[in-house]
Amino acid sequence: MISINNVYKFYENNDKKFKALDDINLEIKENEIFGVIGLSGAGKSTLIRTINRLEEPTKGHININGENILNFNKKELRGLRKNIGMIFQSFNLLNSKTVFENIAFPLRLQKLDKEYIEKRVNELLDLVNLKDKKNTYPSQLSGGQKQRVAIARALANNPNILLCDEATSSLDPKTTKKILTLLKDIQKKLDLTIVLITHEMEVIKEICNRVAIMENGKIIELDTVTEVFTNPKTETSKSFINKSNKDLNYIKLSNLEKRKVYKLKFIGEVSKEPVISEIIKKFNIYVNILSGNIDELMSNSVGTLIVEFLGDEDDINKAKNWIKDKNIRLELIKN
């Protein structure tokens, strides 16, 4: 649906060339929630902004539904933008206009008739659950409410694509969760393709199907969220995951000298089975659980256990083989 090929973006500042995007290749599928994560300055915003050409790539190709959008003239570009909603970290509502007028704004731009606008805005207010704030000005809304108005406004023209640039970064965790749930619902209801940018793994975990990890203008890793969570390949993705798995950092491995510590990763259904009890019964060994955690991903759940096995060496080895057969990832993290 959106394909980005060999896209580069250079900024030139006092003779210094800066590569904000460095050979980006990306295929975003219809109806998926695609996440882009990276540290500040990685080029995430620059990337997402090329999709509606708020930022012009220096070179490369961007196709949306088979059309090369970099060839669009001004009028075609305006047409494209009506089909792509966008929300921002700072909400960007018009302060001089009420909630109703803000949501009606993109419709009024097209001079649609009054009755239709009234009806459509009411529908949207319903969708984001803000009926009672219809005539309020943005300055009287909370951050979460402002973002909901922004979402309604972005959806007014029935777009196929929604771009979210750090849409939850200025919200508290609880509000973030609510907004993400709303986005997830809306995506299903309206068959949207969502491209979402964030620096928080929690957000990716919560709603994304696939994720790209960016660093220095490059995509250094790209896979399904489950795969990245269970098998991160780069240091950057590992550190993002560890940041979100705070529990695992609590155990101090140095306190466990001369003991073998393993990390078990359960993906999908198996994460809900009583695997540990089974091991204890079957192999007659002790399992000491040092730490545990289940990540509920958008499409899967991934359980992580940090354990040590105590007992007969042979029994332990048998248990380890059984674990591997069960499709549980086993990794020795301390010897």
Binding site: L54, R81, N92, L94, L109, L163
Partner: peptide, 12 residues
């Protein structure tokens, strides 16, 4: 940002 959001809606 406000101007940008309006550009992103396709405003002239």
């Amino acid at each position: 940002g406000v101007i940008e959001s309006v550009i992103s809606m396709g405003a002239k």
